[in-house]
């Protein structure tokens, strides 16, 4: 799946997007965050405080317990500040 990062998450992870193939046991958004945190110290730091990390699965807002199985695009970003 394609994983995208926006705003300060992009800066802290050090990339805007990457392609990952999560292990079989990654079922939810929360599982995927734990998996991504193992990829590098920068990932672990950026995704460390889940209170300020929001997620979208295939371009729809998602909660930590929502499924990522079969998703083609998962994005992580801070709470939105448009308008």
């Amino acid at each position: 799946m394609k994983v995208l990062y926006f705003a300060w998450l992009r800066e802290r992870v050090g990339m805007a997007e990457e392609t990952v193939t999560p292990p079989e046991d990654v079922a939810t958004v929360a599982d995927l965050i734990e998996h991504l945190k193992t990829r590098s110290p920068a990932h672990a730091e950026a995704l460390g405080d889940t209170r300020v990390v929001r997620c979208a699965v295939d371009q729809e807002h998602a909660q930590p317990g929502d499924s990522v199985r079969g998703a083609s695009e998962v994005a992580f970003f801070p709470p939105v500040t448009g308008g």
Binding site: A7, P78, P79, V80, T81, G82, G83
Partner: peptide, 25 residues
């Protein structure tokens, strides 16, 4: 406008006094 502010995926980076800072929700 109320829903847009909490749902639309936009992020503001402000330049203040020489430093750039992401705006908190």
């Amino acid at each position: 406008i109320d829903w847009l502010k909490t749902k639309a995926p936009f992020w503001k980076l402000e330049a203040t006094g020489g430093a750039d800072k992401w705006v908190d929700a």
